[in-house]
Amino acid sequence: TLFEALYDYEARTEDDLSFHKGEKFQILNSSEGDWWEVRSLTTGETGYIPSPYLAPV
């Protein structure tokens, strides 16, 4: 399942991933609570992002 960003987000740590509203992601790991490890389909980068900022496509 692909997810889309509902809002912009600016990374706060080196493990976070900055992204823009509308960017699409592949979920790599969603078992860590509200922070999911994802791969951006736009940039190819991986990192953690807050799951409340995402919605299924």
Rank of each mutant, 00 (worst) to 15 (best):
E45Y: 10
F25K: 00
I27R: 06
E23W: 07
L41M: 12
E37S: 07
E37A: 07
W36Y: 07
N29G: 10
L28V: 08
L17S: 02
E10A: 10
Q26A: 10
G47D: 00
A55G: 10
I49F: 01
Y53V: 06
T13C: 10
D16P: 02
Y7P: 00
L41S: 04
S18C: 05
G47M: 07
E23N: 06
L28G: 01
E37R: 08
D34K: 08
L41F: 07
Y48S: 06
G22S: 04
S18K: 05
E37P: 01
F3Y: 15
R12M: 13
W35T: 08
G33F: 09
P52W: 15
F19E: 00
D15T: 14
T46A: 07
H20G: 08
P56H: 07
G22Y: 05
A55P: 04
K21Q: 09
F3K: 00
F3R: 02
E4P: 00
G22C: 03
T43I: 01
Y53C: 09
E10M: 12
F3D: 00
F3S: 02
E32C: 10
V57H: 07
Y7V: 11
E23G: 02
D15Y: 15
T42K: 12
E32Y: 12
E4M: 11
P50W: 15
R39N: 04
S30I: 09
G33D: 13
N29P: 02
R39E: 07
T42C: 09
E37N: 06
P56F: 08
I27P: 01
G33Y: 09
S30L: 08
R39Q: 12
A55Q: 12
T1N: 12
L2G: 02
E23A: 05
E32A: 13
E14A: 11
S51F: 11
S51G: 11
G47F: 06
D15L: 14
I49C: 05
R12K: 13
L2D: 05
L54V: 11
T42H: 10
S40W: 02
L17A: 02
G22T: 02
L17E: 00
Y9V: 05
L41T: 08
D15N: 14
G47A: 04
D15R: 15
E14N: 12
P52A: 15
H20D: 06
T13N: 14
V38K: 00
D8V: 01
G22H: 06
D16G: 15
A5T: 05
Y48G: 02
S18V: 04
E10Q: 13
E45R: 14
P50M: 12
D8K: 03
K21E: 05
G47W: 03
L6A: 05
T1C: 13
S51I: 07
K21D: 02
S40C: 04
F3T: 02
E45Q: 14
E4F: 12
H20L: 12
T42R: 12
P56L: 09
P56I: 09
Y53E: 02
I49T: 04
Y48L: 12
G47N: 01
S30M: 14
L6Q: 07
E37K: 09
I49S: 02
L41D: 05
W35R: 14
E23D: 15
L2W: 10
S51Q: 08
G47Y: 05
L6D: 03
T46Y: 07
K21I: 08
D34L: 14
T46V: 14
V38N: 00
S30D: 14
Y7D: 09
E4D: 01
S40D: 04
D34E: 13
D15W: 15
L6P: 03
